[in-house]
Design a protein around this nucleic acid. Structure first.
Lengths: 198, 198
DNA sequence: TAAAATAATACGACTGGTTGTCTCATTTTG
DNA sequence: CAAAATGAGACAACCAGTCGTATTATTTTA
């Protein structure tokens, strides 16, 4: 039985459109109707798939982060022997993409942490899980770079990964209001190119 | 003529309540009525004071950051000879306050950068100005610490101030979803206590 | 200075539109 | 046939913003 269910297609479409719209307009700034119209799915179906807008948002959060985890893991797996180079390549690719989309949106996690991080328990949880798993991948990458001698070892990889994620989130916010990827490049250079260097 | 106009009192009350509510619920998550009811001011008056919700939000942003600038400048002025200690004391006070308020809200600038940073031009501008002036005060403090020999001088104070502001914004977001000031303390220790040290 | 004219502010009911949620008859599916 | 999925619409609550009128200040005139 390898039948592709329409329900799953619809769910996927809704999640994709949800990611795109929530990223640009935020949770409260995006109405369900807007998403529903975009993928041509009636409200009744929506409430059959997801129980509420809040649950939907929580699923969107997990759906959003997954490709980033896959991509970063991919870069790390490919480049044997130079994890630091893989991290930098991953960032370069991300920055290029943000320039292509004219800095719109930024990071959905960062935006939603600020907007609903302390009003929706469900979303808070999803955000926590997603952000931690993203941090974990960075920790692995930095740890590998440490054993390769390109990253300093007097600080734990975990500490640096946390600092990195924080600074990157801040840089993404500043990118949005400065309409420029300069904050991102500066952040990358300051940490990966300087402070974290062996 | 030192008459205190009711209009100015009302404006001030609206801005204060606006800061409090926007910080917790965000821009789209907070209705004007909610603010108006809290300070008992009718709709018509509001639109007489501010032209729109968007303009109001932009004024809220400037109104929000001012006390922080004053406070940090105050700490820097007082502690002659040890700017780094002043920065740390300022942070300690801020962290204590956030613990008192149970991590609610975080930083209004960070939250609004994410939510309306690329949808409202007026707010984007206000955010940019406010964040830059905050960064500037940090630059002054770090620069003073450099000449006092407590902060490394192989990086510019401006670079470190930018990195600091970014990392701090990220740490505030993570505080919200982890419901703990641990990310803040970790951030303070990692940068002021380690990477920035002379 | 007193009266009249003008301007500024205060007010809240109201508008048109949108929100998230839910109901229910119909269709599809196992 | 029974259960699940679908789709269109109903619903009350809420939204930002408007408008005509009432009140208060300020300025002009005599």
């Amino acid at each position: 039985m390898e039948k592709i269910k329409q329900k799953d297609i619809n769910r996927e479409n809704l999640l994709n459109e949800g990611v795109a719209l929530l990223m640009q307009q935020g949770y409260h700034g995006t109405g369900l109707k807007e998403i529903l119209d975009a993928v041509k799915i009636p409200k009744g179906s929506f409430y059959n798939y997801f129980g509420s807008k809040e649950n939907f948002a929580a699923e969107i959060i997990s759906h959003y982060i997954e490709p980033y985890l896959v991509q970063l893991n991919g870069y790390l797996d490919e480049s044997e022997g130079n994890a630091l180079a893989a991290l930098n390549r991953y960032l370069q690719e991300g920055i290029a993409e943000l320039e292509r989309t004219k800095f719109k949106g930024g990071c959905l996690l960062g935006n939603l942490m600020g907007e609903v991080g302390d009003t929706s328990e469900i979303c808070r949880n999803a955000l926590q899980v997603s952000l931690n798993s993203y941090r974990d991948v960075w920790e692995i990458g930095l740890s590998r770079a440490q054993s390769e001698g390109t990253i300093r070892s007097d600080k734990t990889a975990r500490e640096m990964a946390d600092l990195w994620v924080n600074a990157w989130q801040g840089a993404l916010l500043r990118m949005k209001i400065e309409q420029s990827t300069a904050p991102l490049k500066q952040c990358q250079q300051a940490l990966l190119g300087d402070f974290f260097k062996a």
